[in-house]
Design a protein around this nucleic acid. Structure first.
Lengths: 227, 227
DNA sequence: CCAAAAGTGTTCCTTTTACACCCATGG
DNA sequence: CCATGGGTGTAAAAGGAACACTTTTGG
């Protein structure tokens, strides 16, 4: 086996939730060089004895104080350009985390601030490292997986109404969907949702039936985006 | 920044091509411990100054002698369980490589043998490390990307007929598709294929028009699998 | 002429889309 | 009673599946 340079391996997390009907991502403001003052994805180095998913869970708990929350976690892609971190060679495995009503973050170590940003409002600011690319990859992944998987439910509490589910699609895709047609598709996709039996009294209209996530993970036919 | 253990980062390649109408993968037989004698995916460590894709290209050239061939290369997933390599901690970025009529491999260093295996015939043999998992992830990715991308053309020479294209779907998915319906779908998917103008005289039937890959990368509506 | 593959037409059926309409509640 | 959202019905349009049929070559 030839000699090779040891590299450092990190995980970076794109933690997404819906806040005020806006797809939002948790960013931390760096308190150290490089990129001091810039907003970045929460992340951390992988330690010797942990799997990549474990490292991601640890960052969720430590940097985002989301240890106890139920979040969906999925690996997105690994970024490894030699110059992506000015401190040296760091290969970073990007994860996407999705959750319902995630709380305001506590400020972690080496971090000046931490808060949710609506994805829409990120146009102006410049993220640290290559995190803009990482963020885009994760958001693309989330948007497209809504079409052909049951992932949308991970943005919702365990019990939800169909219009809340429709809201997830509308907010993540930025479209408007026909309520009646969506209702049919959702209720007729096998394994997508299951009726709970009770009803929600949310607003001034007819109470909606409550559902929970079904067993299925894939959606076919898929839910189409051109609403 | 806290101290952390340096890890080694490798790339592993799932190189797929069609040989005798069989989806086939290039495997190398290990000539060193651990797993001496077992078949494994071609791979190698990432060096200090190269990007992950560059490392993958280097492995393609060195271990698979596919340096000059045109192959499609895409990152699949990164595997990092602490015990996946008995020599120590190795995080491995898996790539999928697709190409047309790839040649018989030359035997590389630290390798007893190298050859193409039909994916169908792999049931019996046990691969080294976690390479069975890696292989499965890549094949799943390839199979599902045929549905909604124009990736099928990467299995073909620059000019091809529609029935050759249909053959890619049939061989990769293991199904039989209706020739007439496939013809319509392929010719009407914008950006999928472009007519060249000439014809192929392959077999004993009517000569087929030749096409080349179009500009598009995604296919919608997708090509459905239940042929 | 015949076999074989290429390519087109046609029919039936399912799904999607748009939108009307009724239902059930709070105020 | 009215506003509001929940949920169903329905007709037109689009798309998919099955398969017959025509075209164009080699032998």
């Amino acid at each position: 086996m030839p000699h090779e340079e040891p590299l450092r391996v990190a995980v970076d997390l794109v933690i997404l939730t819906l806040r005020d009907r806006q797809l939002s991502v948790l960013l931390v403001q760096r308190d150290e060089e490089p990129h001091r003052g810039r907003w970045a994805l929460p992340g951390g180095f992988v330690t010797a004895q942990e799997d990549l998913e474990e490292a991601a869970q640890r960052v969720l708990a430590d940097e985002a104080s989301l240890g106890s929350q139920t979040v969906y976690l999925e690996q997105v892609r690994t970024f490894g350009k030699p110059d992506r971190d000015p401190r040296g060679r760091v290969v970073s495995v990007a994860f996407m985390a999705l959750g319902a009503n995630l709380p305001e973050p506590q400020r972690g170590e080496a971090v000046a601030d931490a808060r949710w940003w609506a994805v829409q409002d990120l146009g102006e600011i410049q993220l640290a490292f290559d995190h803009a690319t990482v963020l885009e990859a994760a958001i693309d992944r989330a948007r497209s997986k809504l079409e052909y998987t049951t992932l949308a439910v991970t943005f919702l509490e365990p019990e939800f109404t169909i219009s809340q589910l429709r809201g997830v699609y509308e907010d993540v895709w930025g479209v408007t969907l026909d309520a009646g047609n969506f209702h049919r598709k959702a209720t007729r996709s096998p394994g997508f949702i299951e009726e709970v039996g009770t009803r929600a009294h949310l607003t001034g209209g007819r109470p909606a039936r409550l559902y929970r996530a079904g067993d299925g993970t894939s959606l076919n036919p898929p839910l189409m985006r051109q609403g």
